[in-house]
């Protein structure tokens, strides 16, 4: 989840974070605006070649996109079963493109660089009340805490399995809710203690 590879700096690392974010957003919009099979095929092939061209480490990359691949396979299978191979292709190509590009981005870009880029882009929106620093900080926190959340879910599920409650969604959701709320409190306090006060 959101791994980054900084042991070897590739050409993808050298592209400014803002450019990469913009390219990802543009590609994300493009795949949902077109339903031309050739364009989508081209895009997904490009997205798949990108990490290869930079020799990004295959195993962590695969680990990161594997859950999404399962989802894509399930969606594609659904469309195939309902007798629509073209839709199966469209949905796989769209999601596949976005996921591969997002992986290429997160593998080669520091979160702090993404945050800085986002803050720069949002600066003109200050006049309509957007706070670029807050938006950037929110992004950083989200990326930092998604893996923490997954670890928490795994711990809770394990604890519930040990009690024989593995079937119960409630037994996972309740402790998860309690722990995330407590964590949010602690985090807010820790951020204040580190001298951040939203300006």
């Amino acid at each position: 989840m959101f791994e980054i590879c900084l042991t070897r700096i590739t050409w993808l690392h050298r592209i400014p974070a803002g450019v990469k974010l913009f390219a990802l957003a543009a590609a994300g919009a493009a795949v949902f605006l077109t339903d031309d099979v050739r364009i989508l095929g081209g895009l997904v092939a490009f997205a798949a070649l990108l990490p290869l061209s930079a020799w990004l480490p295959a195993r962590p990359l695969f680990r990161q996109i594997a859950p999404a691949l399962v989802l894509i396979a399930a969606l594609a299978a659904f469309h195939l079963v309902t007798g629509d191979p073209r839709d199966a292709f469209l949905v796989s190509a769209r999601l596949g493109t976005v996921i591969l590009l997002a992986a290429a981005l997160t593998f080669t870009t520091r979160v702090s660089a993404m945050v800085d880029a986002l803050e720069r882009v949002l600066t003109p929106l200050k006049c309509i009340g957007v706070d670029p620093a807050k938006a950037g900080f929110t992004l950083a926190l989200a990326i930092r805490f998604i893996p923490v959340l997954f670890t928490m879910i795994a711990e809770i599920r394990e604890a519930q399995r040990a009690r024989g409650l593995e079937g119960s969604v409630f037994a996972v959701v309740m402790p998860l809710l309690v722990r995330t709320l407590r964590m949010a409190d602690d985090l807010a306090e820790a951020i204040a203690a580190r001298g951040y006060d939203g300006n």
Binding site: I4, R144, V148, L187, E189, A193
Partner: peptide
Amino acid sequence: GFVFQNPDNQIVYPLVEEDVAFG
């Protein structure tokens, strides 16, 4: 400065050096 019991709740940036640089 203030150091809490659970470091998970006070590390705000995903990367070690980014977090140290945060403040």
